[in-house]
């Protein structure tokens, strides 16, 4: 494995391994070449040989392989166009990779049927660079949308239709991000930092095991950015979630991550413990 710090054991089934139920069901051949990472227990994300290009041009991702154990905080750094966002989207199959294999929360999601993929996604909170909230709706309605991870139906489309228990749960999530007093406010009247906190509350509504954040503070001022990163750190401490985020802020990457992954032109250039990194070496990733 590229990263030597992940704690793994050899005694359970790999999400890519020949005996895994997904592979048995798909009837895929069990050649050694297709067997995945050797030690996968407790891995929330395992990726092998991930490739992606757009319109047949130069590869945005060029054979990325890595694994993230449960409870770890991982920062992905790299210059614009290095493939960070594409990598995160491929991990959720929001973008289909050209080749390579992905296991999310221990399940191989390559070619997974849409319904089962939705079940896996429901346990992963994804926070976007631009909060991606419905700006015309209230903060409360947006947070209630998070309940669609586990339920479906009109009750979860708008706060006015939601059952009492769901509304209370959403208020609790807003309370955790310190915005319960703005529950009725429309999102387009909130500041960038407040909107990003509502997006985090929406992710909390999912009760996620794993949170992925794509440059969550890129559109925020330094103080709001610091607040949002603190919030993620607090979630990791209190809920023990796994956290993978991309950032251009090297100080955030070093302060809030256990491990740093550097991408350059779609290739894995760096993988190591965050505290052990020299800032000058990290800057080279951006050159």
């Amino acid at each position: 494995m590229p990263w030597e710090g992940a704690s793994m054991t050899n005694n359970e089934t790999s999400p890519f391994a020949p005996g895994h139920p997904d592979r048995a069901a798909s009837g895929a051949p069990s050649s050694t070449a297709q067997a995945g990472p050797e030690t996968e227990v407790g891995l929330d994300l395992a990726v092998e040989g991930l490739r992606k290009s757009f319109d047949g041009k130069k590869a945005i991702l060029d054979g990325i392989s890595l694994a993230v154990p449960r409870g770890q905080a991982v920062a992905i750094i790299g210059s614009n166009g290095a493939g960070k966002s594409t990598f995160l989207r491929c991990c959720m199959r929001l973008i289909e990779p050209d080749s390579g294999r992905i296991a999310l929360l221990g399940e191989n999601i390559d070619h997974m049927p849409r319904r089962r993929l939705r079940r896996v996604r429901s346990q992963v909170g994804f926070v976007f660079q631009r909060h991606n909230l419905v700006s015309r709706l209230s903060a409360l309605s947006n947070v209630i949308h998070g309940a669609q991870a586990h339920h479906s139906g009109p009750c979860y489309w708008h706060q006015a239709l939601a059952p009492k228990a769901v509304r209370e749960q959403a208020m609790h999530c807003l309370d955790r991000v310190g915005l319960a007093h703005l529950a009725r406010q429309r999102v387009d009247s909130l500041s960038g930092g407040q909107s990003q906190r509502v997006a985090i509350a929406r992710a909390l509504m999912q009760r996620p095991r794993f949170v992925i954040a794509d440059e969550p503070v890129a559109s925020l001022d330094p103080s709001a950015g610091e607040e949002v990163m603190e919030m993620f750190a607090e979630l990791m401490r209190s809920d023990g979630i796994t956290f993978v985020f991309t950032s251009h802020h090297l100080d955030h990457a070093i302060s809030y991550a256990d491990r740093l992954i550097g991408l350059r032109q779609g290739r894995l250039e760096l993988d190591g413990l965050a505290k052990a990194q020299d800032i000058a070496v990290l800057r080279e990733i951006y050159e």
């Binding site: 429901s122 994804f126 669609q148």
Partner: peptide, 9 residues
């Protein structure tokens, strides 16, 4: 995209 990512129908 955000709702698709969280597993909404």
């Amino acid at each position: 995209e955000a709702l698709t990512a969280l597993g909404a129908s």
